[in-house]
């Protein structure tokens, strides 16, 4: 459950954001990041529907490389 998913912020509406990863969109709570500005285009580490922290696009990409590997292993 500690496995966070890096997602890209598409739209911000108050404490909620529509985020995207791998073509899948999800509603994500920004309530734990309320003291930091979060804007469309930002990347966030999401865990159980909550953004834990902001991250750079490059960091998000390297995390996704790992998950691709895991998804491939899970499909095998």
């Amino acid at each position: 459950m500690c496995l966070g998913i890096p997602m890209k912020v598409l739209e911000v509406d108050g404490f909620n954001a529509r985020c995207e990863a791998k073509g899948i969109e999800r509603e994500v709570s920004l309530f734990m990041l309320q003291d930091e500005p979060v804007e469309p285009g930002d990347h966030v580490m999401v865990h159980v529907g909550y953004a834990l922290q902001k991250m750079t696009e490059e960091e998000a990409r390297s995390a996704w490389e790992m998950y691709d590997l895991m998804l491939a292993a899970a499909d095998a």
């Binding site: 500690c2 159980v48 909550y50 834990l52």
Partner: peptide
């Protein structure tokens, strides 16, 4: 059930 990573969102939900 969960560790800090899960309990913080649960707490957030309750605070919100």
């Amino acid at each position: 059930a969960g560790f800090e990573t899960t309990m913080a969102p649960v707490a957030s939900l309750l605070v919100q």
